[in-house]
Simulated scan of single mutants.
Amino acid sequence: MKFNILAALTVFTPLLLATSVNAANPQHVKKLISTGECSGCDLSKANLSGAHLIGADLRNANLKGANLANANLEGADLTGANLAGANLTSALATNVDFKKANLNGVNFSRATIYDSNVYGASMNDLNITNAEIFNTGIGVGGEDAEIPDWK
């Protein structure tokens, strides 16, 4: 009897884990695209490349590992959202609220980021290669950054 239970667990445990792997909820993706509102939604690893998400409500959404390359996020609210490891290559992020968001490991290469709020956001290991950043608290720096002598 114990052997049968152990054998069943050995067979079914990987299947259970496979279904719990973080992946976007298709219903949430559909809701976002159709309404522009998806506060608290699971959009992890979603392919939203080129999406027009102007003014979208994505507060506290899980966008971990999502593909937002070439997306238009103008005026979107991403307060408290998890964007860890997301791809925002060439995205337009003007007037975006990233307040208290997890931006760790986000690829902002060639993105346009103007007048966006990053107050309290976590921003470790950002890729900002060739990004245009204006009036937004994102820049090169940190503990090992060279501090210029302004004398």
Rank of each mutant, 00 (worst) to 15 (best):
R110S: 08
G105M: 08
R59S: 14
L83A: 14
L17I: 05
A86S: 14
D125N: 15
V106Q: 06
A145Q: 05
A121R: 02
G139R: 13
K64V: 02
D77Q: 10
K30V: 08
L73R: 07
I113F: 02
F3H: 12
N22D: 04
V29D: 00
A71E: 09
L63K: 07
A23I: 05
D115Y: 13
N117H: 03
L48M: 11
V96P: 00
V106G: 07
I128H: 04
N117Q: 05
L32G: 11
L88G: 08
Y119C: 00
N102M: 07
F98C: 09
L92G: 10
N130R: 14
L53Q: 06
T129Y: 13
S90K: 15
E74N: 15
D77C: 03
T89M: 03
N127G: 04
D144P: 00
L88E: 06
L32M: 08
N67A: 07
S20K: 04
G50F: 09
G142E: 02
G40A: 12
N22M: 03
N135D: 14
L78S: 04
V21A: 12
L58G: 09
V11D: 00
A18Q: 12
P26M: 05
S34C: 04
K30W: 06
A18E: 06
N130F: 14
N82E: 03
A18F: 14
A81I: 09
I128Y: 01
D42Y: 08
L16R: 00
F3C: 07
N47M: 07
N22W: 08
T10A: 13
E37G: 03
F134K: 11
L53C: 05
I128L: 09
K30A: 15
Y119N: 11
L63S: 03
S44F: 13
N60I: 03
S122Y: 05
A56C: 09
I113G: 01
N107G: 04
A86I: 04
F108Y: 11
K2G: 14
F98K: 10
N25Q: 08
G120C: 01
E146Q: 13
L126T: 04
N62Y: 06
V96C: 04
K64P: 00
G75M: 02
K31C: 01
A69G: 12
I113E: 01
I54S: 09
N47I: 05
K30P: 01
A93F: 07
V96N: 09
I5K: 11
K30C: 01
